[in-house]
């Protein structure tokens, strides 16, 4: 992919969707340049490190979700008994602690919901960790959607359809190519130079309540100078 100073490889794959049950993973390299064996080795080595590091970190997701559910049921039962007690015995204590009950008694429920929502990701990560493999020989410049995208972005740059600028390349990937992987790549390049934005109340609430989808690392692999 073109960058402001040259070019870089990036991996356009959602590791959380890769399943070792479907067979070994094959790396496919799309590049307008001739790629030397050493570069292929570096790309493959970093892909493997990223893929299995992700699998190791996600292997615990959704594990034992039924036991999480059991704990949540136990906690909700105690909460039910507590609420019934406070309703039956209205007092100052009920007003003091009643409003704060959700902060303390929904932690196990939240963990159980997260574990249930992430059980497929965790199962896939465990399968990848146990029996996943990356084929030794990568496919280089085979036909596929990704190849057309790579060709189009280089051609657009050559023809002056967009500038050699991270924001322009991100916009081109989003509007012209409709390629989410490239958008994420250029956004990561841009975010590396910009300070992170402060979290809003909405994002904090979403982070607290919604089950988080595991995020695979997006690694810039090898850069090249501008041709």
């Amino acid at each position: 992919m073109p960058t402001e100073t040259g070019a870089a490889f990036f991996v356009d794959a959602d590791y959380s969707e890769l399943d070792a049950a479907n067979g070994p993973v094959q790396l496919a390299i799309y590049s307008p340049y001739e790629v030397s064996p050493g570069e292929v080795a570096v790309v493959r080595g970093r892909l493997e490190a990223d893929l299995f590091s992700y699998a190791a970190s996600a292997a615990g997701l959704g594990r034992a979700w039924m036991r999480h559910g059991l704990l949540a049921i136990l906690e909700l039962t105690i909460l039910g008994v507590l609420i019934a007690f406070l309703v039956a015995n209205p007092s100052r204590v009920a007003f003091i602690v009643g409003w704060a009950l959700p902060f303390g008694f929904f932690i196990a429920t939240r963990s159980a919901l997260h574990a249930f929502a992430q059980r497929e990701y965790g199962a896939r990560a465990r399968r990848m960790l146990e029996s996943g493999a990356v084929l030794a020989e990568p496919a280089i410049s085979q036909f596929g959607g990704s190849l057309a995208h790579v060709r189009d972005i280089w051609r657009g740059l050559e023809e002056g359809a967009f500038a050699r600028d991270t924001v322009a390349l991100e916009l081109a990937s989003e509007r012209l190519l409709r390629w989410p992987g490239a958008v994420a790549f250029y956004r990561s390049q841009r975010d590396a130079d910009e300070p992170s934005r402060p979290r809003t109340l909405r994002s904090r609430l979403a982070r607290l309540l919604l089950p988080k989808r595991p995020v695979a690392p997006l690694t810039t692999l090898v850069a090249r100078p501008r041709p």
């Binding site: 030397s36 050493g38 570069e39 080795a41 570096v42 493959r44 080595g45 970093r46 493997e48 490190a49 990223d50 299995f52 590091s53 699998a55 190791a56 292997a59 960790l129 146990e130 029996s131 996943g132 493999a133 030794a136």
Partner: peptide, 30 residues
Amino acid sequence: ADQAAPAAVRSADGRRPQFVDWEVAIVHPG
């Protein structure tokens, strides 16, 4: 060693032994 080597070795901790054979590619200037 490449920067990814420690992560690759660490990630092999939870893998089955038959999938953990190590091949080191030494990249050189040709």
